[in-house]
């Protein structure tokens, strides 16, 4: 059962900010079908490319890191991204589970 009080991801974000890093917060805002992590799941990414937490079962994290780094580089405050079912024969990022997720990225500034 999810208990937001126990999640330490925001505390970790605070530590990164204290260490003078740029931090992007990624939150699962919508899911369709069988997605591995529920709405409200979070991960954080900093300008070095370090990440913590998760928004899927490892399927899209790499792509999320890339998107977050892009956000920092272009200095955009926020962005919404979506991932759909992957085509297993192609080397593309997607959800092997067949689900779809929408993720909200926002810089902590």
């Amino acid at each position: 059962m999810k208990n937001s009080f126990d999640e330490k991801i925001l505390e970790e974000a605070k530590d990164w900010i204290f260490a003078k890093r740029n931090v992007v917060l990624a939150t699962v805002i919508q899911t369709w079908g069988s997605s591995p992590r529920q709405v409200g799941s979070r991960m954080i990414v900093n300008d070095k490319g370090d990440f913590s937490g998760s928004v899927s079962g490892g399927c899209v994290e790499t792509a999320v890191v890339r998107e977050c780094l892009g956000l920092i580089k272009e200095n955009k405050p926020f962005k919404k991204i979506e991932f759909r079912v992957s085509n297993e024969s192609a080397w593309e990022v997607g959800l092997a589970c067949g689900g779809e997720i929408a993720i909200f990225l926002e810089q902590i500034n």
Binding site: F5, L10, K14, I17, L25, N109
Partner: peptide
């Protein structure tokens, strides 16, 4: 998200106050 808001959220979590984060 503003740094100030992040701080506020962490404080509320520590105190176990029931709340929600709302985002437009």
């Amino acid at each position: 998200m503003k740094k100030q808001l992040l701080k506020e959220i962490i404080e509320k979590k520590e105190k176990k106050i029931e709340f929600a984060i709302i985002t437009d």
